[in-house]
Simulated assay, not measured.
Amino acid sequence: MKKMMNTPTLEEETNVAVIGAVIAVVLVTLLSVIVLIIIYMYKNKGTYRTYEHREADREGSVQMEDLSNKGEKEEYFI
């Protein structure tokens, strides 16, 4: 009893190549998107200023902003 080896046909080889190429393109695209998201998040950390009362100020008093440029003229828009 002889075992016959099944050699893939040209059509099967083409199908395997196409499937491999599609998987490779999807993986490269996914990795590119992940890298772009990481770069975007790294560059846009952002800082912001809040004007809320601190926890230590429980009296509820309103305080004016600290004006460090007292010597300069102030502009008022009406």
Rank of each mutant, 00 (worst) to 15 (best):
D57Y: 05
D66H: 06
L67Y: 04
Y42A: 14
L30R: 12
Y40A: 13
V16E: 15
G60H: 01
G46Q: 03
G46A: 02
Y48K: 15
I34L: 09
R58T: 11
H53K: 11
D66P: 00
A56N: 03
A56K: 02
M41T: 15
G46R: 04
Y48H: 14
G20L: 01
Y42D: 11
N44M: 05
S61M: 04
A24W: 09
N15C: 06
S68M: 04
V22W: 12
T47Y: 07
E59D: 09
R58F: 11
N44P: 01
V18T: 10
D57H: 04
T29V: 14
Y42M: 12
L27N: 08
I23W: 13
A24P: 00
L30Y: 13
V22I: 13
L27Q: 10
I38E: 10
R58M: 09
N44G: 02
Y51Q: 07
I38C: 06
V26Q: 10
I38R: 11
G60Q: 01
M64R: 03
D57A: 10
H53E: 03
Y51F: 14
I34D: 04
L36Y: 03
R58N: 06
R54L: 07
T50P: 02
V18E: 15
T50C: 09
I39V: 08
H53V: 05
N44R: 05
K45Y: 11
A24V: 01
A17P: 00
I23F: 12
H53R: 11
I19H: 15
Y40T: 15
V18H: 08
V16G: 13
N44I: 02
N44W: 01
V18C: 05
D66N: 07
Y51I: 09
